[in-house]
Amino acid sequence: MWEERFADLSAVAARQNGLITSVQAAGVGVEEAALARFAETGLLTELDWAVHQLAWSTLGPRYAYPYAAWLALEPSRFAWERRAAGVDAALSHESACRLHGLGSVPGNLMIFTASVALEGPRATKVHLAPLAPEDVTVVEGVPVTTAQRTIADLLADWTDHGVVRGVLLDAVLKDLVDLRSVHEAVAPLAVRHEFPADGGDFVRYFLPDLAPSQLSPRNLRSWAAMVLPDRVARVQPGAARLIADAGGQADARASWDLAADIVGRSGQTGSPG
């Protein structure tokens, strides 16, 4: 009999990275007493928040605990049901930093942002705010705000700028964000949250030790456009001619980006733009 119950439990948990809530287990006929018995025999472990991880699950603690906390926000609904209905909640703020491996951020809570009102279990915090699909990604099954949205959330939440510096530096070096896009997203917060709105000053303030040679091509281009705009402007007419000679559409954005690319690459060696 217990084999059948564990098989039923496993069939459902297999669609949730080997995790299942107590409420979900009861829904497939596995009551608390059976869960306790499975725990005693090492077939599962209760992580927290009445969420259990089956022994065969390969999800490590870094991902299992935030995923368990996400399941606990809606313990009666299965993960696939929530995904089908759209983004309801995502790991965010400092918790998102830890999942992405960005910076060194304090805090013991599991922090989420939710687009609908959700009651978080203990040791969790839920921010109620809109979540656009492009603001959320999935890491090892865990819905989490993108690095760019995470940085914007940290700044909006008055996080110490020293902490944000470490997060932004890691995000740029890992190429999880485009530096120019991050600046455009957070610039409206600059005056109220007391950081520079100008692109070059923004880079110098938040990334004082950044070496252009460390950057991916797209971030090298963004760095040049923000830090050396005068040089990019001087190169832009020539870039426009190059695009036109190649039969391309020499619009302002394309020629600016090509000019920034040229300036960025030349800037790595210190040659003039």
Rank of each mutant, 00 (worst) to 15 (best):
S104G: 05
Y65P: 06
G120L: 06
P229L: 09
R15D: 14
S104Y: 11
D198A: 14
E134W: 13
T145G: 06
D230T: 15
P188L: 11
M1H: 08
P130H: 12
S255M: 14
W2Y: 10
H127N: 05
V182G: 03
S115M: 03
A50G: 06
H93T: 01
L215C: 01
V191F: 12
A114G: 08
K174I: 05
G248N: 05
R149D: 02
C97M: 14
T145M: 08
E4L: 12
D135H: 13
A14W: 07
P75G: 08
P121S: 03
A50P: 00
D257W: 10
A84F: 12
A123P: 03
C97T: 11
G200F: 00
S76D: 14
D209W: 08
A260K: 11
A36C: 00
Y205H: 06
G162P: 04
L109T: 01
R37P: 01
W2I: 07
D178G: 11
K174R: 14
A225R: 11
T45A: 07
Y65N: 00
L215T: 02
T146C: 00
L179P: 13
G267M: 00
T113R: 06
A147P: 02
D153E: 13
F202D: 06
D178V: 10
G199L: 02
T58V: 10
E46M: 09
T137D: 01
G27N: 10
T146D: 02
T145V: 13
S22R: 15
F78W: 14
D198P: 09
V126S: 13
P121Y: 10
A25Q: 08
R82D: 00
P61E: 15
M110V: 04
A152R: 13
R234C: 03
V186Q: 05
P212M: 09
D257E: 15
E119D: 12
V105C: 02
L154T: 09
G270N: 05
H161V: 07
E3H: 08
D160P: 02
G101W: 05
Q214H: 01
L210V: 15
S255W: 14
A90Y: 13
T58I: 04
S57N: 11
D261Q: 14
G199N: 03
P133Q: 13
A224G: 09
L228K: 13
R265M: 06
L44I: 03
A254M: 07
S115G: 15
L118A: 11
V167M: 07
S213Y: 04
I262K: 11
W80G: 12
Y205R: 00
